[in-house]
């Protein structure tokens, strides 16, 4: 077989796949090129964005309600399709997408800035859980600046996978004993008691439980 005929065959192969995904995406009719039923693939695509976003942003869904969340998830899935093989981390722009709803017809229906902040934190947990390059240590720490205390409380009440504990006293005790904390563990801006400067999520393998420890100011204890 010559190189040219190989190229032609490869083109035909690619075109066959292209026709298939075009049908899945609803861009072209499912016609005589195929036999069978394209709907299961189309339904999978519609449900994919919703299911993954629902898994990754449970607090956001709780606040918005199923109907609004579903609509937003489907719009997000259409305009921000997944481009990486790891489905677990789908939704990296969901917080920005939610923040932009301030320009939508529902601008006044929700506090979009707060919801976007919650989405940012929920995604930080996903990112930390799956993202490459993190050390294989028993404890995982997340840095998170400018995090709203109200958002923190909403996650504490609604997120099904995080057990949130306040460990300020331990932190202060250690400081009093002269131990130096790494800045990624602990920082409080006393001038803004409602704001956390650093979010610390600790995951302890030996407890077989995901534990997230929010650092907080004394005013929040």
């Amino acid at each position: 077989m010559t190189d040219i005929s190989r190229d032609v065959d490869q083109q035909k192969y690619n075109q066959a796949l292209e026709k298939f995904v075009s049908s899945v995406n609803g861009n072209t009719a499912f016609d005589g090129d195929f036999q069978g039923n394209i709907k299961p693939y189309q339904i999978n695509q519609r449900m994919l964005a919703l299911n993954v976003l629902r898994n990754n942003f449970p607090t956001v869904e709780k606040i918005l309600g199923e109907s609004v969340f579903t609509s937003l998830a489907q719009v997000y899935g259409k305009y921000y399709p997944s481009t990486w093989w790891d489905v677990n981390i789908f939704g990296d722009q969901f917080a920005e997408f939610l923040a932009s709803q301030i320009n939508s017809a529902k601008a006044d229906a929700y506090n979009w800035a707060l919801i976007a902040e919650i989405a940012q934190l929920e995604y930080a947990f996903i990112d930390r859980y799956y993202y490459p390059g993190h050390d294989s240590t028993p404890e995982v720490l997340i840095e998170f600046s400018h995090f709203d205390y109200e958002a923190q409380q909403l996650i504490k009440e609604n997120h099904p996978n995080l057990v949130i504990t306040y460990n300020c006293l331990d932190r202060f005790q250690s400081t009093a004993n002269g131990e130096k904390f790494h800045s990624s563990h602990w920082s409080v801006d006393s001038s803004q008691k409602s704001k956390l400067k650093i979010f610390s999520a600790s995951v302890f393998r030996q407890n077989f439980q995901v534990v997230s420890a929010f650092s907080c100011s004394t005013a929040n204890l």
Partner: peptide
């Protein structure tokens, strides 16, 4: 195949069964 033209479909999509494939 699971990805085409930069988009990941996260689904197990069939291919034609040909000599080329």
């Amino acid at each position: 195949f699971t990805s085409f033209d930069g988009r990941s479909y996260h689904d197990l999509l069939p291919v034609p069964y040909t000599q080329k494939s």
